[in-house]
Design a binder for these strands. Structure first.
Lengths: 169, 169
DNA sequence: TTTTTAGTTTATAAAGTTGTAAACTAAAAA
DNA sequence: TTTTTAGTTTACAACTTTATAAACTAAAAA
């Protein structure tokens, strides 16, 4: 879906208005993407806004205005996104306003999120196996296979982190 | 959480009743786990049941009875889980009943699911970058970093799949 | 001191999800 | 042919989520 949009644009230079239009469309697409990932619709659109626009910092009122949402929705959703670590805000000296922006955290933390999921499922497989009467039952054999896969994946993530660190230098 | 349960059991041999009790508790834990992954509560408990019990195939009525749920909930949830490819059923010759069991699919498909997610996010980063006026803005630089990470991850998954295949032989 | 700014909190409406009971159906058994 | 088995479908109740309007608050500006 994103790929097809991409291919329609790469061959010409857009005007500012064309780009703005496409950015607004992309915000909606990103909103739907995050929706499917389990975020609430407004959270997805806020993330989209902060990701795609040329302006990369928005105040509370600008977000309310831009996305046409209520102040209370904005207030609650911004607090949640900040607590989850997806966005952050800065304040400028002499101003009371908060400027929200995406939290550009270390890309390695993305890998670490994957790692946590793998470790969690490995724990479940271990405990299921521990409670199986017949260690050679079809499910027991299957969970052993999955366990060996988690081992490979964790090793692979480790190498990946090292490669990324060395490519940064 | 699972880890702590695990450590309390490893040092003695359980009686059948103790094991059964612990298996039922684990079904609830796995239910909560899948809940958090976005499954509905009943779906999570059905998956738990089919994963942990010594008996690894259950009929419709056994599931209804075991989990104390209505036939309609069971009917709808089993259909959804089957369509998603999480469970499957077999029929025995001369019987009309369906026997449900977890779909013990190739572990490599687990990696492939991760790969799809990575590819999807790479598409988003590409399109966001395509629409950025300033290719050196903080977000643009950040998304370029994330893109290079997706490259490393995909290469890493590829190697991981090869290792797994060769370890299987 | 009063007003404005920059939000937060509360109460509630609207919509969506989850699960049930009861009626229904199609195939097999009696 | 009637009854039983093995579910499915429908209608609806209960609950949860999502978003809003309106009232409120605390800090800064006028």
């Amino acid at each position: 879906m994103f790929a097809s949009l991409f291919l329609t644009n790469i061959f010409w230079n857009m005007t500012s208005e064309e780009r703005l239009k496409k950015q607004k469309d992309l915000i909606e697409e990103i909103g739907i993407y995050f929706d499917k990932e389990g975020f609430q619709p407004i959270a997805g659109r806020i993330l989209g806004l902060l990701m795609v626009m040329d302006k990369e910092r928005f105040t509370f009122d600008e977000i309310v205005e831009e996305l046409q949402i209520s102040k209370s929705s904005a207030s609650i959703t911004l607090r949640n996104l900040e607590m989850r670590g997806d966005i952050e805000y800065i304040t400028l000296p002499g101003e009371r306003k908060r400027y929200f922006q995406i939290n550009r955290k270390d890309p390695l933390s993305v890998i670490e999120e994957f790692e946590k999921k793998i470790i969690k499922s490995k724990e479940i497989f271990d405990y299921v196996l521990e409670l199986k009467e017949d260690q050679n039952s079809p499910n027991a054999v299957f969970f052993k296979e999955l366990k060996s896969l988690t081992g490979l994946l964790l090793a692979s993530f480790k190498k990946c982190k090292e490669e990324y660190k060395s490519s940064e230098k």
